[in-house]
Design a binder for these strands. Structure first.
Length: 546
RNA sequence: GCGCUCGUAGCUCAGUUGGAUAGAGCAUCAGCCUUCUAAGCUGAGGGUCACUGGUUCGAAUCCAGUCGGGCGUACCA
């Protein structure tokens, strides 16, 4: 908001010095005594104009044409920084504008008319979700929410595979557990089978439904085991996602790519482009031709495709559906597929800019400083569902979203359990509840609702600081959205809540002189809307009372 | 070995397209409730930004190398 005002003013000034297309950058100085913004333009131009930065700064300032009512000062500091400080009037005007947006403040138009597809979770129905999936799910869901705020038309998608090795493996594991129930507790369990307790639950369910009729080891019975396992896992997964307030629009089955002939078509196309060749009984993709280090197998000698082929076919399919942007959320363990997919779709003639792949690092769970294991294979695991039941969706989502996706995330179970001021999510919710409470206590709302609000009465430092923070909300939405970094929003909300708490502590709202009370109420109300909207984007509730 | 990623306060982490004295939360210590919710506020201590070199007016940030952690590196997904 501030930049929108000063940028053209500086552009004109720089232009009048004979410089076109200057790279004007406005930073917020660390030391607030320097002002609200600073620019290094004078240093940048030092070489071109062959003058010292301070001389240039003076020249630039002499050419600035601005409203003295809105800017308090512009001066030179240090090596040649130009510092700008806005007057309170400027901020009062901003607040007045924001008040007119009502609850829509922060919504952007960047994405209007554009379609984006965000694919996330995408866990195969071979087990229960764990914390890593949780991070994936919250990240994807929040990114999708952010895109909606940017104006995009958003499709949320879940990609899964209910065929192949891993599913067969699960079917066999269930069968073995089933046989252990009805026949012999030492019935051999597949070597690389799924050891989780849930496999026993599925077997128990089959026993109750079919009694001993599945005992014969044939294709039909194994299929029953596999199908039941798939159904059971999917139901659990969806249930867990629902608890996390996640609902996706499209569930895309990898199998569709085969039945619709998209895999066959892709093989054909690669062959036609001379990018596929036969070797050692397998079909290889010439990735070396596409700038990568090694060629890779796309169809095994057994005739089954490797994961690359459906991955590429799936991305082509999504792009052909007409999305301007296709976003994937992957865990770090899937990073190997990224270059292959990008090379593949590029070879097929698509702009790789249309695909954005988010890789999030792993989550570790700690309790009292000790790491808790949550492996799928070892059987004993702490699932996402357990966690949701224990600490609730708000805490889980906030904890999983409050770190940059590229860093390893440590989930502190002891802290998450703590229902106290140590738990950071309550800090935000508390600010929201506090504001609600004020509005419950207004004795006579008429003046607040009907009188023209005079924002110029807000002069305290904590009031102006809060306004400055409020102004930043749209930028935060835009940058968190376009960069797909939800934690920028969690950081911002924490700062906003902080500024509010300070304001609340320093400035009495109810009982202040009528005009001032109304202005402060409006300031609080705008803050409340932003917290509520921000938390909603994060998928976290904003309680009226705590 | 190679690729990706991370290394910032005791712990968990922020740190904008390179900017001025490196920040927050927790933990520790010291204060603030007759007034709108103390799940709050104020203050203090705490740093070789892993290491070395380079680029320049200026580096936690960019480049090269070294060390250390994680994930990949399959005719698993």
């Amino acid at each position: 908001m501030q930049k929108e005002y000063i940028k053209p003013i500086f552009e004109n000034a720089v232009k009048s010095l004979g410089i076109e297309n200057a790279n004007l950058i406005f930073d917020v100085p660390k030391n607030l005594d320097f002002g609200d913004f600073s620019t290094n333009i004078a240093m940048q131009l030092a070489k071109a104009l062959k003058k010292s930065p301070r001389e240039i700064a003076e020249l630039v300032i002499s050419k600035l044409e601005f409203d003295n009512n809105l800017i308090e000062f512009v001066n030179i500091a240090g090596a040649g920084f130009i510092n700008i400080k806005f007057s309170n009037n400027f901020y009062h005007n901003c607040l007045e504008n924001i008040a007119n947006f009502d609850t829509e403040f922060g919504k952007q138009t960047t994405g209007i008319g554009k379609k984006v597809n965000v694919e996330y979770v995408s866990a195969n129905p071979t087990g229960l979700l764990h914390l890593g999936h949780g991070r994936n799910a919250c990240t994807g869901d929040t990114v999708a929410n952010l895109f909606e705020w940017l104006g995009y038309e958003v499709t949320r998608e879940y990609y899964f595979n209910n065929a192949g090795n891993q599913m067969n493996n699960l079917g066999k594991s269930v069968y073995a557990r089933y046989m252990q129930i009805i026949e012999d507790e030492n019935f051999p369990f597949p070597e690389d089978g799924y050891h989780g307790e849930y496999v026993k639950e599925i077997a128990q369910f089959l026993f109750e439904k079919y009694e001993k009729s599945l005992a014969e080891k044939n294709e039909e019975n194994l299929t029953i085991c596999r199908k039941k396992a798939e159904e059971w896992c999917f139901e659990k997964i969806l249930n867990t996602l629902e608890k996390m307030k996640i609902k996706q629009d499209i569930f895309y089955n990898e199998d569709t790519l085969y039945t619709d002939g998209k895999i066959a078509k892709l093989i054909e196309d690669f062959k036609e482009m001379n990018l596929a060749y036969q070797k050692d009984g397998a079909l290889w993709l010439k990735l070396t031709e596409l700038g990568l280090d090694d060629d890779r197998v796309i169809v095994k000698s057994s005739g089954e495709p490797t994961y690359r082929l459906p991955d590429i076919a799936y991305h082509r399919e999504k792009l052909l559906r007409g999305y301007d942007l296709v976003v994937d959320v992957f865990g770090a363990d899937h990073i190997a597929t990224v270059p292959d997919v990008l090379a593949g779709i590029k070879a097929l003639g698509f702009d790789t800019e249309r695909v954005k792949i988010l890789i999030h690092q792993f989550v570790t769970l700690t309790e009292n400083g000790v790491q808790v294991k949550m492996s799928k294979r070892t059987g004993k695991s702490y699932t996402l569902d357990d966690l949701l039941d224990e600490v609730g969706a708000d805490v889980v989502r906030f904890f999983l979203l409050m770190r940059g996706i590229s860093t390893h995330l440590e989930f502190d179970l002891s802290l998450a359990r703590e229902q106290s001021d140590k738990n950071p999510v309550f800090y935000l919710q508390y600010a929201h509840a506090r504001i609600s409470s004020i509005f419950d206590k207004i004795e006579d709302k008429n003046s607040y609702l009907n009188d023209k609000i005079d924002f110029s009465l807000l002069k305290e430092k904590s009031e102006i600081d809060l306004i400055k923070r409020i102004i930043k909300f749209p930028e935060v939405i835009e940058s968190a959205g376009l960069k797909c970094e939800p934690h920028h929003l969690t950081e911002y909300l924490r700062e906003l809540a902080g500024d509010f708490h300070i304001f609340y502590h320093n400035c009495r709202i109810l009982g202040a002189e009528q005009g001032l009370q109304n202005a402060r109420l409006k300031l609080a109300d705008i803050t409340k809307n932003i917290i509520k909207n921000g938390l909603t984007i994060l998928g976290i509730s904003a309680p009226e009372r705590m």
